[in-house]
Design a protein around this nucleic acid. Structure first.
Lengths: 87, 87
DNA sequence: ATTAAAATTTCCCGTTAGGTAAAAATCTAT
DNA sequence: ATAGATTTTTACCTAACGGGAAATTTTAAT
């Protein structure tokens, strides 16, 4: 099978490595659109403001962790952490 | 093989699911000790203050994402995100 | 039990995250 | 092209993050 050429941030059931806030923002944005949600929708669900969502999706370094995890939950995603393969 | 009974937050190469900041804090703390680092060591490496490390390990909701990712890197860990299995 | 090292708490304080609301810019469809 | 919805930006503002340093508590070791 040839590896498919998927758009940046796309999630096709294989886990995506998050190295930076930019990575995270990209993934969340693509996922939100795939779920046909607006930023306001998400903000409402996760109990944050629109500004927070915008900042997060833009890879802001200083966005807070708590709300981000809730948001990820609402997007039907899950975060895992493990030892780096090559250390 | 019987599943081993590992201490909370231990990482034995299988990925750990992060649902909350408390989960994250616990994992990072155990990992730091396994690496024989002090909080000051880590703070120095990641370019943050000791207070930040303490807060993060204590599961503070409002800790910022950027420094956390750097820290995770320095601990030889990696973060991944994927679709929830059961949505 | 003492002593030392490490972890946590506390105080002071400049910087800023992020909420609301409104305006501007961008994207979608017809 | 134009209207409508969505996203982003902006401004204002309060709450609070997080750094440094010192003090206190906890842990570890002999």
């Amino acid at each position: 099978m040839k590896p498919k050429n998927l758009p940046l941030g796309n999630i096709d059931h294989e886990p995506i490595r998050i190295r930076s806030t930019e990575d995270l923002g990209a993934v969340l944005k693509v996922r939100r659109k795939k779920q046909k949600m607006t930023q306001s929708d998400l903000a409402g669900l996760a109990g944050t403001g629109v500004r927070y969502i915008v900042d997060l999706e833009n890879g802001k370094q200083t966005a807070q962790i708590g709300p981000a995890l809730k948001l990820i939950e609402w997007l039907g995603l899950e975060v895992t952490i493990r030892e780096k393969k090559v250390d």
